[in-house]
Design a protein around this nucleic acid. Structure first.
Lengths: 260, 260
DNA sequence: CCTTGACATTGACGTAACGTCAAGTTCTAA
DNA sequence: TTAGAACTTGACGTTACGTCAATGTCAAGG
């Protein structure tokens, strides 16, 4: 069977404009083009279109989709196309998971902002940076600036001063809880590779990821490891984790966590 | 104090290009423009800039930010600017929540796709691999046969194999969409008697009615209820609805729906 | 005085994935 | 025959800026 562009679009739940777009990209070519220039699609083309739309619903970009389909076309039956697609989808899954984490953080931030706005006793004045127990970046301005650049410092400082008092308190509580758990783990003699320590390491990394001014991508792990060295070397940091022994536990656990 | 455009950008952790952009939009105007056209920003402008950047980090669009700030400028001190901002942020919170639901659906779909691709059941690639996307009657042959008789199974299998590839994919997409909507509803904490859940229940029943091999007449409702129990009891089914909690929502919603 | 280099300006194009006209051609049904 | 539906290509609009390009301004040094 052969379908007109509109029929094809309706069958696939999209628009003719999209079909022309995909044609111009070479992503889904019509099976036949009439002498009048009209596009016609057969079942094979329709299946390909549906695959494209499916992958697009999974959130992949058109360029990536083209790669997937090209790879599968190339290895007709030889290798394992399913494995290739699974690998690509797994990578994509990570992106999605990170994206969800980002959204969750935004939701948290908006919720706290609303809470602070509607709380009667909170004035929204800017508070001094000393409230930032456990990671007072004003006190450690030089380290942060030197190691990660002025931008990181300015960004983090701007972020902090932009928070309301309520949000700052919330943040502090989160930090305090994490630090307390680390201290307790260290006091309990947990090993760096124990489930408890690794769970804390995961939390710690998630916290650092949410820290504004933190580098992303390939710079993130070196950044984390650098911070850990600072925890151990600088007793002002180490104190937050129950002293040098606690900071050492943090460092070792995070090293293991970031090893892969 | 007065800062140059670069100083201002550095202080706020952004770029001069962004400042020019905001100026062209009228979002953050420089406090003074020199005879040479140079922009200069004072502390008030900087605070405004920081608010813009903060709201942007919360994910608001620049147009929305302009609304917020305009509203706050309008009611200088008269009304309650915080309430206005809270209202707007609440609306924004809904958007974020929907977005997270969307991402959750994508994650679920990708996970299921990967599972289907890597499952030993798959023979002929993606198209037939996850025919029923969690309702693979081949995998669940025994249950179906035992409960509803061999006729039902054979009938449904014949029906399925009689479909064209496009029709099969269409069916899959419908099922996937329904499951994803259930998962999202469960994740959103919908109650079984809520309009959302009841609307989904209606869709689900309509889907089951179209399912070949399904009993009709007086046997239909017991059949539906039996299936729902299976959803909850069998995690292979439950996984399609976001786990046991999702399957429970499905079951309860369908119980209510079929009560009359 | 002239040069050099840092910093400033406006203007324009590019991004992802199409939506939305616009102007013209072709098909279909009355 | 003729209206209207469907089709074509081409081009601009969308977000929030990044990234040149071409040019102007300012402070310091030879």
């Amino acid at each position: 069977m052969e379908y007109s562009i509109q029929e094809t679009a309706r069958a696939a739940g999209t628009t003719s404009r999209t079909l022309r777009h995909y044609d111009s990209l070479g992503l889904v070519r019509p099976s036949r083009v009439g002498g009048n220039g009209y596009r016609f699609y057969d079942d094979r083309a329709l299946v390909r279109l549906q695959r494209v739309l499916l992958l697009r619903e999974l959130g992949l970009g058109l360029d990536r989709i083209a790669e997937v389909l090209a790879a599968q076309d190339a290895r007709g039956e030889g290798s394992d196309p399913a494995a290739a697609e699974a690998t690509l989808l797994t990578a994509h899954l990570e992106l999605l998971t990170r994206e969800r984490g980002r959204i969750d953080k935004q939701i948290g931030a908006v919720r706290r902002t609303i809470a602070a706005l509607t709380s009667p006793h909170e004035r929204t004045g800017l508070m001094n940076a000393n409230m930032f127990e456990g990671f007072d970046h004003t006190a450690h301005r030089e380290e942060v600036s030197e190691r990660w650049g002025k931008d990181a410092y300015a960004k983090s400082d701007r972020w902090w001063r932009g928070l309301t008092g309520g949000e700052q308190q919330q943040w502090q509580q989160d930090v305090a809880a994490l630090n307390a758990d680390w201290s307790a783990a260290a006091a309990a003699g947990e090993q760096a590779d124990s489930p408890v320590a690794q769970a804390l390491a995961a939390r710690h990394i998630a916290w650092l990821e949410g820290f504004p001014g933190a580098p992303s991508g390939e710079h993130f792990i070196p950044y984390v490891r650098g911070l850990c060295e600072m925890y151990v070397a600088d007793e002002r940091f180490a104190a937050n984790y129950g002293g040098v022994s606690g900071a050492t536990l943090v460092r070792d656990a995070l090293r293991i966590r970031t090893a892969s």
